[in-house]
């Protein structure tokens, strides 16, 4: 089956910044994204667990989007402007998609 190269961008960020991030991604031309809840983790800010929080405001989410390679730089610039000062991780991996016109 024919597949097409694309980039999968995973952004783990504080839940309070979620809407700001997705707005920036849409402005940068991202056609779609998926948001997942994050259960817990550990990093520079210490250990963290969803069950220890009293509201969603203190939680983390992961925003995943798949885009064409030529759109990556513009998308990362938009994302970085939002996440720069905040706790979070941005990673990019290569992937293949079946329907290139959707990304």
């Amino acid at each position: 089956m024919q597949t097409h190269r694309a980039k999968r961008v995973e952004i783990t960020i504080e839940a309070v910044m979620q809407s700001r991030l997705t707005e920036a991604l849409q402005k940068a031309g991202v056609k779609g994204y998926t948001i997942l809840p994050v259960y817990g983790g550990s990093g520079r800010s210490g250990e963290w667990n969803r069950s220890g929080q009293i509201s969603r405001a203190h939680g983390m989410v992961q925003v995943i989007c798949i885009i064409r390679e030529e759109r990556l730089d513009a998308m990362l610039e938009a994302a970085f402007a939002v996440v720069e000062r905040h706790i979070g991780v941005v990673s990019v991996v290569d992937c293949n998609v079946l329907r290139a016109e959707r990304f």
Partner: peptide, 26 residues
């Protein structure tokens, strides 16, 4: 406060250490 203000501080002052204000207030 430990609900409304921490959320606002994470957005407006993300460099402030949340462990300090959350542990103190809560």
């Amino acid at each position: 406060s430990y609900i409304a203000v921490p959320a606002a501080m994470r957005v407006a002052l993300p460099e402030a250490n949340p462990s300090i204000y959350l542990t103190l207030s809560l």
